[in-house]
Amino acid sequence: MSLSLDDVSRIARLARIEISPAETEQTRDQLNGILAFVEQLQAVYTDGIAPMAHAVDVVQRLRPDVVTETDCREAFQTIAPETEAGLYLVPKVIE
């Protein structure tokens, strides 16, 4: 299956990446090229095969529920685009 221009716009919206109308066509062609390349996976018989998420079979570790982080707010906020009174600023989202 190949992507339409509308599909590309929808995916870009989901990914929160702005794509100009001029870029949409080229992006569609390149994404379709990659999807055509990975299409060969569909022909492989994989019934009964367990998906492999990680290379080595390990179980998730648990750790004691204790505080391990120290307060680094000031250091972290010096590299933020916009802060005020210890808060990160973003455009208003609640009317």
Binding site: V38, L41, Q42, T46, I49, P51, M52, A53
Partner: peptide, 10 residues
Amino acid sequence: KAQKIRRLIA
């Protein structure tokens, strides 16, 4: 699908 094929490769 790709994760299943990953197991075949391993």
